[in-house]
């Protein structure tokens, strides 16, 4: 997994000493680190810890309002008061979002990176550049592109359904309780596939070409070379990509927020927490709007999500390890 250049440097040799020379006065070194460390502690570590604390309070985003410790009430509300059918659906939706994004995004990325990396293909840099483009465009731009493509009744998808597929009353995809969710998943994959692909390409480029040559002299088929040489050698990249996609898609709500605002049964746990804390559709499992910027409740939703991410990450890592050993 060492894709980065690890060229040994002359500096390394000098670094072996146990107590490095204090070349610069410590106070100035520390002073320079201070803004970064302070910022990190204040805006990263502290908020991260406080989320757990706030989840046991009824704090609201409305300043000046008093708040108090309310024990497990937020969690109770989440797990007991919410309609069980909707709660199950929302949790399943979150899982489905992560599952489909991970599987589809990585499959396409792997397929395309193997092709793009193969010697015969012309214009591979162009292809790679194009596939990667949406990554840099960002959620707002991608969402707006998506809305334009799926708009009714002038968007190309609507026209396609109407004129080519001859559907009499085509649904407005992005405001349909059935089709909006798959469309958002597709947007997520469309945006991030290039990211996974770049990681795969890096891993593929790290494979020693002579391995293939000797294998092809031995008469190995393309499939055999792929499964016996390529796959094992890029397994760590697959593992990283899986992890990134799972964590990324479980937590990400930018596209949901920008495309549907959490409406039309597209809200996942991450979006629910966001909408509860800052307003918007889909703050609860039923899709209802939550009033009053209930950030304590949102913090509880975040904690449920965090627990989920933790469990899924651990399980997926164990599975990936096991699959690696079995090879």
């Amino acid at each position: 997994m060492n894709i980065q250049k690890t060229a040994a440097s002359p500096g390394r040799m000098l670094n072996q000493k146990k107590h490095p020379l204090r070349l610069f006065p410590l106070w100035i070194v520390l002073l320079c680190m201070l803004p970064g460390v302070l910022h990190y502690c204040i805006f990263r570590l502290y908020p991260s810890m406080m989320t757990a604390y706030y989840s046991f309070t009824d704090i609201s985003g409305v300043p000046g309002t008093t708040w108090k410790f309310i024990g497990l009430a937020n969690y109770k509300e989440f797990f007991i008061l919410q309609n069980p059918r909707d709660l199950k659906a929302a949790l399943l939706r979150t899982a489905a979002y992560a599952f489909f994004v991970t599987i589809i995004q990585n499959s396409i990325a792997l397929l395309l990176s193997v092709i793009v990396n193969s010697a015969f293909l012309k214009g591979r840099n162009f292809a790679r550049g194009v596939y990667f483009m949406p990554v840099i465009l960002g959620a707002a731009v991608v969402a707006t592109i998506w809305k334009a493509i799926f708009s009714t009744p002038t968007g190309p998808i609507y026209l396609f359904m109407q004129n080519v597929l001859h559907i009499a009353n085509p649904p407005a995809i992005l405001s349909s309780r059935v089709y909006a969710f798959p469309a958002v998943i597709a947007a997520q994959i469309w945006q991030n596939m290039g990211y996974s692909m770049v990681i795969f390409i890096a891993a593929l480029q790290g494979i020693d070409g002579t391995l293939y040559e000797s294998a092809s002299i031995d008469g190995a088929s393309n499939w055999k070379m792929f499964s016996k040489i390529t796959l094992p050698l890029i397994w760590s990249a697959i593992s990283i990509n899986t992890l990134l996609a799972i964590i990324g898609s479980l937590q990400s709500y930018e596209l949901i927020m920008t495309i549907t605002r959490g409406n039309f049964n597209t809200s996942t746990l991450g979006m629910m927490a966001f909408a509860t804390a800052f307003g918007g559709g889909g703050g609860t499992a039923s899709g209802a709007v939550v009033n009053g910027l209930r950030q304590g409740y949102a913090a509880a939703e975040s904690m449920v999500l965090f627990a989920g991410v933790l469990v899924v990450t651990i399980i997926s890592q164990i599975l990936m390890k096991r699959a690696e050993v079995e090879r």
Binding site: Y46, T51, Y54, G61, Q251, A277, F278, M303
Partner: peptide, 9 residues
């Protein structure tokens, strides 16, 4: 976990 809410506070 991201500390969106405490950051806001």
């Amino acid at each position: 976990p991201s500390g969106m809410i405490p950051t806001f506070q």
